[in-house]
């Protein structure tokens, strides 16, 4: 079990609704805590992580800030529709980033879609996202 959502592992952000050059979405999957991705305003914001191959997700760890409501969706294939995995409402924390863990229940997924439905402020940041799981042999 290892972090699937790492750029070294081949994961890619194929879609992100906000893109600031200084804080690109890649900061989420670079495995570093001090880089982050910011949203540019408006809600809902989302980003999609594509894994190299079909994987089964165990848990998802996300470290963010100012996020209020979060929704996770998976799709096993590019053409398939996304199925909701989980919806969570985070607590506001002023001094430190929020940290959440969502169980994946070993769902098989090729793409992971994270939707930030609302936030506590105009902008929010995601420092890191870790997807723990195994690669599936299809």
């Amino acid at each position: 079990m290892f972090d699937l959502a790492l750029s070294e592992a081949g994961a890619q952000i194929i879609l992100a609704t906000s893109s600031d050059d200084k804080y690109p979405p890649e900061n989420m999957i670079d495995g570093k805590d001090d880089t982050f991705w910011t949203t540019c305003g408006l809600y809902p914001q989302e980003f999609i992580i594509k894994f190299t191959s079909l994987v089964s997700i165990n848990t998802i760890q996300i470290s963010c800030y100012n996020v209020k409501k979060l929704k996770m969706e998976v799709s096993s294939d590019d053409n398939q529709a996304f199925k909701t995995l989980a919806e969570k409402e985070l607590q506001p924390s002023d001094s430190a980033p929020q940290s959440e863990e969502i169980s994946g229940r070993n769902v098989k997924a090729m793409n992971l879609r994270v939707v930030i439905e609302s936030g506590y402020d105009h902008f929010c940041a995601v420092y890191k996202i870790c997807v723990h799981g195994n690669a599936e042999r299809s």
């Binding site: 890619q12 952000i13 194929i14 879609l15 992100a16 890649e26 999609i48 594509k50």
Partner: peptide, 8 residues
């Protein structure tokens, strides 16, 4: 990356 994103 951006191309991929664009496609997505």
């Amino acid at each position: 990356i951006l191309q991929k994103r664009r496609e997505a």
